[in-house]
Amino acid sequence: MKLDKFVTSMASLRLLSGTLEILAALWMLKLGRVDQALAVNSGLALVGPTILILTTSIGLIGMADKLSWGKMIFITIGVACLLIGILKK
């Protein structure tokens, strides 16, 4: 079975993200203080949206020949709305 390079890239990024999350949780436990754990958690706030953007971009590039420009724009607007909702205070 031949794996698609786009799917492999997307899955690899998600594995990296999950690994970082687990390592951060272990680090929080090792630190044992709320203020330091909160600092580690704040650093993770950059990881989630970055992985979302990268995996979505790779997926869209992989599907570019199958989607119309209108659908690509619609998907991009949807991702932008998600990011605005996540990052807006």
Rank of each mutant, 00 (worst) to 15 (best):
L38A: 06
S12W: 06
W69H: 07
T55V: 15
D4T: 06
V34S: 06
K5H: 13
V79H: 09
I58F: 15
I77Y: 12
A39W: 00
G78C: 10
G59R: 09
A25L: 09
S68R: 08
L13V: 06
F6H: 13
T56D: 08
I58E: 05
D65H: 13
T19V: 00
P49C: 12
L16V: 11
D65F: 10
W27H: 14
N41L: 14
M28S: 10
G85M: 01
L67M: 15
L13I: 10
V34F: 12
L82P: 03
L31H: 07
L67K: 05
V47F: 05
V7Q: 11
K66N: 11
F6I: 03
G43P: 04
F6N: 12
L67R: 02
K5G: 00
K89I: 07
L46K: 04
S12Q: 06
L38K: 03
V40G: 08
V40K: 07
V40Y: 10
L16W: 03
I58M: 04
A80R: 00
A11L: 10
L67W: 06
L54M: 09
K66V: 04
G18T: 08
M28N: 01
L87K: 12
I86E: 02
I22L: 13
I75V: 12
S68Q: 03
V34Q: 13
T50E: 07
L46T: 10
V7I: 14
S17E: 13
G43V: 06
G43D: 00
G70I: 10
T50S: 12
V34E: 15
A11E: 14
I51Y: 02
M72F: 03
A64N: 14
G18I: 02
L31E: 15
I22W: 01
I51M: 04
L16N: 08
S68D: 15
I22F: 05
G43W: 10
S17Y: 14
L44M: 15
L60V: 00
T76C: 02
T56W: 02
P49D: 06
V79P: 03
K89H: 11
T56F: 05
K30N: 07
T8A: 13
T55Q: 08
L67G: 06
D35P: 00
S68T: 05
K5S: 08
F74L: 15
L54K: 00
